[in-house]
Amino acid sequence: MKQITIILEGFGSTLLLLVRSLSYLPSLPRQRARFIEQCYMIGYTTLPIVAILSFFIGSVLALQAGYAMQNFGAKQFIGSLVGLSMARELGPVMVAILLAGRVGSAITAELASMKVYQEIDALVTMNIPPARMLVMPRLAAVLVMVPVLAIIADLVGWFGGAIVAKYVSFISIEPEGYFSVLRRYMKFGEDVAGGLIKAEIFGFGVVLVCCNIGLNTRGGPREIGAAVTRAVVVSLILILVLDYFVTKALM
């Protein structure tokens, strides 16, 4: 019963935080320095790891597909398989998972530490709503940066697949053939855009949940660590649960 109450409280406080933060959206121009800083944190600093991981995810996808498909002579379709998988599923999910691990954990740690050391209380007494100063710029930044990260993940993943397809001896497909199949079987408006919508929803959800858990931390330094763990676990569950429902809705 207590667990159910905690989960419902979590839902309620997250929704409240969302409404409050959105109500401060008109003040975004005044918060532009914080918005740009968050764009840098969410976008620029996450970019290298997104690029490295997408490259190897695309590569291993091509490798596994090539190994399986060579038995029934379908390896020329590797391009479409890698293309669709990256754009529709792996790109958005991987970007969101990296965001939860790298950015979400940092957000929770920062806000939880501000809460524990009474910096949040100080903001409230100064009549500066934490949702306006700390949450809204992060939500706006994630909305701008996640599609960029997802597009880069798609492109690098496709490129990784193309390299494996060309240089692994039992596949040996030239990039021209790989990309021509990829283009033929992909609807960019539907597959790529659908993936970007998914990434946007996951990224927004991750940042919102991590902010809420950080702001609701109580206790001492030990609770900061516990809050970070909780934020990452809740984010991962959220991503995978939302993944099913958003994918279904976009079909």
Binding site: M114, Y117, Q118, E119, D121, A122
Partner: peptide
Amino acid sequence: FQAGALFN
């Protein structure tokens, strides 16, 4: 505040 609560 007791510990100052300065923004670190």
